[in-house]
Simulated scan of single mutants.
Amino acid sequence: MLGAEGASTAIESYQSQAQQLMKDYLLADTFVPYSSILVGIFACKLVYELTQLLSAFYFKSYSSLSIIKRIEWNNRAISTVHAVFITGISLYLVFKSDLYNDNALSGYITYRSSFLSTSALGTSIGYFIADLVMIVWFYPSLGGLEYVIHHLLSASSIAYAMITGEGQLYTFMILISEATTPGVNLRWYLDIAGLKRSRAYLVNGVVIFLAWLVRTF
C-alpha cells in the first residue's frame, strides 16, 4: 500500500513539473516565437513565387526544365535566401553584438536571448517547416529520408533554443555553417544550366571546399 502511495506521489510530482515547464516556456510570451515562425513560412512562399516569376523572365533555360526541376530550382532559391539571412544574423549575434559579451551583460551566456535572437530562430524554424513540407509532398524528388531526418532534428533543436532561451549562442554558432549552402545551390544551378565545365563551376567548387575547411576548424 505504501509503495502504491509512493508511486502516486511520484506521478503527481512529474505532472506538476510538466505543468510548470508548460507554463514557464510554452505558454509564456508566445507572440514573438510563433509569429516569427509564421513570418518564416510566408517568407518562403514569397521567395518561391518571386523566383518562379523572375526566373521565367530572366533565364531562358528555366522554361525548358521539367516541372520537378523547376520546383527544385525555386526550392533552392528559398534555401539560399534562408542561408544568407541566418548566416548574417548568426555572425552578428555571435561576434558583433553585446548579447554574448561577458563584459556587457551579467548572467550565464547559455541563458541569454533577445528579441532579435528569438525572432531569427523562429524565422529559421518557419523555413525548415516549409521546406520539410515540400520535401514530403514531392518525396523523394527533393530529397530522401536523410533530408527529412535532418530537417526534423534541426527544427526540433532550434525550437528548443527558441522556446526555452537556453543554448542560443551555440545554436547560432552551428547555424553559421549555413554559409556553405549558397555555394552548393549555385553549383546545382550551374550544372542545370549546362555550365559544368565552365570556370565559374570550378571556382565555385574551390570556394565550397575552402568554406568547408574553415567551418571544420
Rank of each mutant, 00 (worst) to 15 (best):
Y25Q: 06
L26I: 02
L27R: 05
L27F: 08
D29L: 00
F31K: 11
F31E: 04
Y34D: 05
S35E: 06
S36N: 09
S36F: 13
G40P: 04
F42M: 12
F42P: 04
A43R: 02
A43Q: 13
C44H: 01
C44E: 00
C44L: 11
K45I: 12
Y48S: 10
Y48P: 05
L50H: 03
T51Y: 13
L53N: 10
L54E: 08
S55K: 02
S55L: 08
A56V: 04
F57S: 01
Y58I: 14
Y58A: 04
F59E: 05
F59P: 10
F59C: 06
S61C: 13
S61D: 14
I67G: 03
I68E: 13
K69F: 09
K69S: 13
E72L: 00
W73Y: 04
N74C: 14
N74T: 01
N75I: 00
N75F: 15
R76C: 08
A77P: 06
A77I: 12
I78A: 00
S79R: 07
T80C: 03
V81C: 05
A83L: 11
A83G: 09
A83I: 05
A83Y: 01
V84F: 14
V84A: 06
F85M: 06
I86Q: 04
I86V: 13
T87I: 02
G88M: 09
I89Y: 03
I89D: 05
Y92E: 08
Y92Q: 05
V94F: 08
D98M: 12
D98Q: 14
D98P: 13
L99I: 12
N101V: 15
N101A: 15
N101R: 08
N103F: 15
N103W: 07
A104K: 08
G107H: 10
G107K: 11
Y108H: 10
T110S: 11
T110C: 06
R112K: 07
S113I: 02
S114H: 03
S114D: 14
S114E: 11
F115L: 12
F115N: 04
A120Y: 00
A120W: 01
L121S: 03
T123Q: 09
T123S: 12
T123H: 02
T123R: 02
I125L: 09
I125H: 03
G126N: 01
Y127T: 05
Y127P: 11
Y127R: 03
I129N: 01
L132C: 08
L132T: 00
V133L: 09
V133M: 13
V133C: 02
V133D: 13
V133Q: 07
V133Y: 13
M134E: 04
I135W: 01
F138L: 03
F138T: 01
Y139H: 09
S141Y: 14
S141L: 14
S141G: 02
G143Y: 11
G144M: 08
L145H: 06
E146V: 02
V148I: 09
V148R: 00
V148M: 00
I149N: 11
H150N: 13
H150S: 07
H151G: 06
L152R: 10
L152I: 15
L152K: 06
S154C: 05
A155D: 08
A155L: 01
S156L: 09
S157F: 15
S157N: 09
